[in-house]
Amino acid sequence: MNIYWQTLKRDLNVAIRNPSSVLNPLLFFVISVSLFPLAISPEAATLSQIAAGIIWVSSMLAVLLSLNSLFYHDFENGVLEQMLSSHHSLSLLILSKITAHWILTGIPIILLSPLLGLFLFLDNIGVKILMLTLLLATPSLSLIGAIGASLIVGIKNSGMLLSLLILPLYIPILIFASSAVSQASVGLEVTAQLYFLAAILVLSLMLAPFVSALSLKISLE
């Protein structure tokens, strides 16, 4: 388990010393959300209805943007080869890298979401449920995204391929999360959606590290 923390610490150190790789997806997230009122309508009634969708779609695209670099640099400089030839479980090492990705992308998105929610006139209960859905589902975005990132690791200019692979898998999360926020805003029960998001998280936590490890082995052959 020690190697899990060491990999996590290493990845966080690398990211902190190369802040553009962390800040770019977050800036994209904030800018894309802030453009919607200009394009659609600045009216509170309109924006509050679509706020959940805007924030959720933007956060998914921001996560997608950051996934390209999840394994790429380690593949380029040969660290992945060292990980593969190590006696430690590759799935555990990948889980650690996914955790670092979530800390650097998912947590900032969760922390920014109340501000952006208020900016889009989302009510208090809506903001609370928005944060809860992001907390439950952003780890799933990182976990599922790692499968795609490991499949395309050796392919150049593969951004579009990653989107084609991953976005269909993100759709259930998008549907349950945005519907939870919309329903909470009109006072309806949202437990079912939250349970679905939690189930997706457990499922992806169980499967994604193993599938990613297998994909990486194939990609590096």
């Binding site: 020690n2 190697i3 060491q6 990999t7 290493r10 150190n13 690398v14 010393r17 190369n18 640099h73 380690d74 380029e76 400089n77 040969g78 660290v79 080869e81 060292q82 990980m83 030839s85 190590s86 006696h87 430690h88």
Partner: peptide, 28 residues
């Protein structure tokens, strides 16, 4: 019981020599 050093440096340019070595050694 094996160590493999390939063509590639296996060093992250954002980390110091010691930090890189500590991590790569910890893998083995």
């Amino acid at each position: 019981d094996t160590i493999y050093l390939g063509h590639l440096s296996a060093l992250a340019s954002e980390l110091s020599c010691l930090e890189n070595l500590k991590y790569l050694t910890a893998l083995n």
